[in-house]
């Protein structure tokens, strides 16, 4: 019973109208599709949260993929599409962090670690040469 029901759900959530559904189907142009996939890999599904929209079965992830493909097909750059989604859902939706003062630490902390390490190492190497 349960199984029948689930299969029915699988099959009936279909959108019977669309001939081509960009939520689930690729763009015709391979270069555009590649750009869209790369972008979709770096966008967070807003209901399942841990997953990128490219790998999520949620309805809204499909809706987001449709928007991404349509906008890429219309000639927008991936970063413009990312911006479009960030305007609506905030920075959380993008796995690629937006560079702004609050996120500078993401680059400054490793840089500081690298510099500190290099200072420690170089001091030692100079010492060794005495």
């Amino acid at each position: 019973m349960m199984r029948r029901l689930l299969l029915a759900i699988f099959l009936l959530t279909a959108a019977p109208l669309a001939a081509q559904d960009y939520a689930h189907e690729a763009l015709a142009d391979p270069a555009q599709e590649a750009a869209a996939i790369e972008l979709m890999d770096s966008l967070r599904c807003v209901v399942c949260q841990g997953q990128p929209i490219s790998g999520s079965n949620a309805d809204i992830a499909g809706d987001m993929r449709r928007i991404v493909r349509e906008r890429i097909a219309a000639g927008e750059t991936p970063e413009q599409v990312r911006e479009w989604l960030i305007t609506r859902y905030g920075d959380f939706v993008s796995f690629k962090p937006v560079v702004k003062p609050a996120t500078w630490g993401l680059w400054l902390v490793p840089l500081a670690a690298l510099l500190l390490g290099l200072v420690l190492v170089s001091r030692r190497v100079r010492l060794r040469r005495n």
Binding site: A15, A23, V46, V47, I60, D63, I67, L85, R88
Partner: peptide, 14 residues
């Protein structure tokens, strides 16, 4: 809204 377009426009996630 079968394609969630309005939902995405207003930033609704569920």
């Amino acid at each position: 809204d079968n394609e969630g377009r309005s939902q995405l426009e207003i930033g609704s996630s569920g």
